[in-house]
């Protein structure tokens, strides 16, 4: 599935001082290619997370459109957009994002349960892949930041999405686990998915097919 953004922009209101608002993302065109891992680098506050959220149907742009195979996802009803996200987009949000009342396995299974399935075998396979199979019955409170991040990756992949949007997925990981996660995203792209990785870690460039830079809300293809 091809995901494209046409002249999308997003501005936020300033809480104090200066102009009333600022552009987190200026008018931007972007295409997320299938079978490829696209890495967007940028400092904190450069607008890369905002771009990812707009692509994931999580933040309506102030202008422009986001198209999935030519269909404007923001023209869909909330129910249809939610179902589309559940089925086709795997989002790995920044930070720790477990559902605290569920075990690791249940967290990973959650998107499949929402889709009316229970892909337990695949969930266990994913947990094995991200290296936390032994923690399947642990509660999120018992996991380290890195383990929680790996759980979120497994959860994003459970419905075998054709689009994966990863926001700083290696933020809390050591070198070994960083390599594992990047390899996993690389493999996911190789399997046919369109993968977007936004990060400020330069090592990710080694795994990416396409490398872009974001600065001051502008996307460029030069590092």
């Amino acid at each position: 599935m091809k995901l494209t953004a046409e002249k999308v922009s997003k501005k936020y209101n300033r809480k104090t001082g200066g102009a009333g608002y600022f552009y987190a993302v200026g008018e931007t065109d972007f295409a997320l290619e299938e079978n490829a891992l696209t890495a967007v680098f940028g400092r904190s506050g450069s607008g890369k997370t905002t771009l990812l959220h707009m692509l994931g149907g999580l933040l309506a742009p102030d202008s422009g459109r986001v198209l999935a195979d030519g269909r404007d996802i923001y023209a869909l009803s909330d129910k249809a957009l939610s179902a589309f996200r559940n089925r086709h987009i795997g989002v790995i949000p920044q930070g720790s994002t477990p559902i605290a009342s569920l075990t690791v396995l249940e967290n990973v299974l959650l998107p499949s349960l929402m889709a009316g399935e229970r892909a337990e075998a695949y969930a266990l396979e994913l947990l094995e892949t991200v290296g936390i199979a032994a923690l399947r019955d642990a509660m999120p409170g018992e996991l380290s930041g890195g383990e929680l991040r790996r759980m979120a990756i497994a959860r994003a992949l459970i419905n075998k999405p054709s689009i994966v949007l990863a926001d700083e997925p290696t933020g809390d990981l050591d070198d070994e686990n960083t390599a594992k996660v990047l390899s996993l995203l690389r493999d996911t792209a190789a399997g046919g998915a369109a993968v977007l990785l936004v990060t400020h870690e330069s090592e990710a460039a080694n795994y990416a097919d396409i490398v872009l830079k974001m600065d001051g809300g502008k996307l460029t293809n030069t590092l």
């Binding site: 999580l58 909330d78 939610s82 559940n86 994002t97 929402m114």
Partner: peptide, 12 residues
């Protein structure tokens, strides 16, 4: 927000 990210609609 996480539930929404995973595909829960507002009504759900």
């Amino acid at each position: 927000a996480v539930l929404r990210v995973l595909g829960a609609s507002r009504a759900r």
